[in-house]
């Protein structure tokens, strides 16, 4: 199986508007097994999105090493699909043309045109091929964006809080779909989120990060839990409490003075 990412001692600095150096990521080491689903979670400013963008090759890290299946990552490439926070569909193209973009750009469209219809079917957008993005709802646009990212068979799919702007029900639907695609296509997925439930529901392992400087605080392995991680199961709730405790959002449990 392909799609293993090895990150060792990665460091990234930014200049803030005042010209001061800000350490966005410090000494990040992480091994992402091929075919696993990893969530990066943490409060804003912890560098989770930056880490994801470095994996995508959209940002460059000054320190450390990062490889995909042993080869160093030097820039963006079609072996790593990327889903943005807002769908970023090309709004001058129809849904079909958006999904076909990657194949056309690489000159593969002629051989693999059927793949476009297949992807549209997988994300449930059959019949919307000729629509423009502004004619679809936010959830449908994210589905199209998912199809666009997957059409070229990437080894890894990187998800940068793609469901953050959707309503709760649409969100859960698309979570299920992504989980299903992950299982069927047996690919590696790395997702940035600030939603603890989403991270637990979907992941094999959760990387909890803390800000200033962005570091990995703890990595939770959920791979022995039976899948799917039912949202209402006991394991889910225990896990949730654990993640919140790591993030210091656990709160204090008050002992009741009397039982009802």
């Amino acid at each position: 199986m392909v799609g293993g990412i090895a990150i060792s001692h990665l460091g990234k600095r930014f200049k803030n508007p005042q010209g001061e150096d800000i350490t966005a990521l410090s000494d990040i080491s992480l091994n992402i097994r091929p075919g696993s689903f990893v969530s990066l979670i943490g409060p804003s400013g912890c560098g989770k999105s930056t880490l994801l963008r470095i994996i995508a090759g959209l940002e460059h890290a000054e320190e450390g090493e990062i490889t995909l299946d042993g080869a160093p990552i030097a820039g963006p490439g079609c072996d790593r699909g990327f889903m943005f926070q807002s769908h970023m569909l090309f709004k001058w193209m129809t849904i079909y043309d958006n999904v076909a973009f990657g194949l056309r750009a690489r000159g593969l469209y002629r051989e693999q045109a059927g793949r476009v219809d297949e992807m549209l079917g997988i994300v449930g957008l059959k019949g919307f091929e000729k629509h423009y993005p502004h004619q679809l709802s936010g959830g449908m646009c994210q589905r199209a964006s998912l199809a666009r990212a997957l059409v070229g068979h990437p080894k890894v799919l990187l998800l940068d809080e793609p469901l953050g702007a959707l309503d709760a029900f649409t969100r859960m639907n698309i979570q299920d779909e992504i989980a299903r695609i992950w299982k069927e296509q047996s690919m590696t997925m790395v997702m940035v989120t600030h939603d603890v439930d989403e991270a637990i529901y979907m992941s094999d392992s959760i990387v909890v990060m803390t800000p200033r400087p962005g570091r990995i605080k703890q990595i939770l392995d959920l791979s022995d839990l039976p899948r799917p991680h039912a949202r209402s199961g006991d394991d889910f709730l225990r896990c949730r409490a654990k993640v919140l405790r790591i993030l210091d959002y656990g709160g204090k449990i008050q002992k009741p003075e009397y039982a009802i």
Binding site: G57, G77, R80, F82, S86, F90, G102, R104, A105, A149
Partner: peptide, 19 residues
């Protein structure tokens, strides 16, 4: 992000400018 999306989909610079 439009250019980034194009880059992650494997589009070349000239293809990105045109499309």
């Amino acid at each position: 992000a439009y250019f980034e999306a194009a880059a992650t989909l494997g589009a070349s610079k000239s293809y990105t400018i045109r499309k």
